[in-house]
Design a protein around this nucleic acid. Structure first.
Lengths: 111, 111
DNA sequence: AATTCATATCAATATCCATTCATGAAAGTG
DNA sequence: CACTTTCATGAATGGATATTGATATGAATT
């Protein structure tokens, strides 16, 4: 699985993202579940789909929303696409706590 | 301004509030502004209205949402109603950082 | 280049949420 | 009590967001 940084899609470049926007992106059970998954390790869309048990199309929409909010990044990996926490988020991460700049989120279990 | 704790409205009692629910409550510029105001000190609805410059009715709706999410509490104070951060939130507070249990929010300025 | 696999996007619908307006309720005032 | 002040609530609206099914794209495989 080779990674070409120039192929990394970062929807963050340029636009300013408000705290409310990021919170809106996270304020959804499905998207929180995605972030919880990616907190463990980067995963392909297919893996996320199996874990979350939702329609492929729906997952894709949620992933785009998370990308646009600058919370996750994606990268093509052969036929698949690999998703991970955005580097800016990953950089400030401390264990199960992710730092969005405006706020930190911890993930006790499933609440 | 006397405070009778037994008259304190806590919409939190009983119901479980998920992280997504609390984040949804905060994922709005208006409601973030309310929380920022209450971070300074408890305030009456009228004061909040002046600060936020929005319709009384609209503010009331947002306040109810924040109450239901267990983020703020209200208490009648004569003709007015005084709002403050929920005690559970206030207890865990550290400066400009509020702790919702599932997550902490800091408020740099206006982002 | 045709086919298959994995994902994204489009179009349509359904559901939710913010806002406004009109009204109601609680407390103080004359 | 009638009236005012202060806030809450309900219904109605439009706009945003979620969900689905169908189709498009891009990469690998044959």
């Amino acid at each position: 699985m080779k990674v070409d940084p120039f192929k990394m899609r970062k929807e963050t470049s340029g636009e300013e993202i408000s705290c409310a926007t990021m919170l809106k992106a996270l304020a959804d059970e499905t998207r929180l579940a995605v972030v919880r998954q990616l907190l463990t390790n980067p995963q392909h869309v297919g893996e996320l789909q199996v874990a979350l048990e939702i329609e492929q199309s729906l997952l894709s929409h949620h992933l785009k929303l998370l990308r646009d909010a600058g919370i996750v990044e994606s990268e093509r990996d052969g036929k698949s696409v690999l998703y991970r926490l955005a580097s800016s988020v990953e950089l400030r991460r401390r264990g199960d706590i992710i730092d969005l700049g405006c706020c930190q989120l911890s993930f006790p279990s499933g609440k």
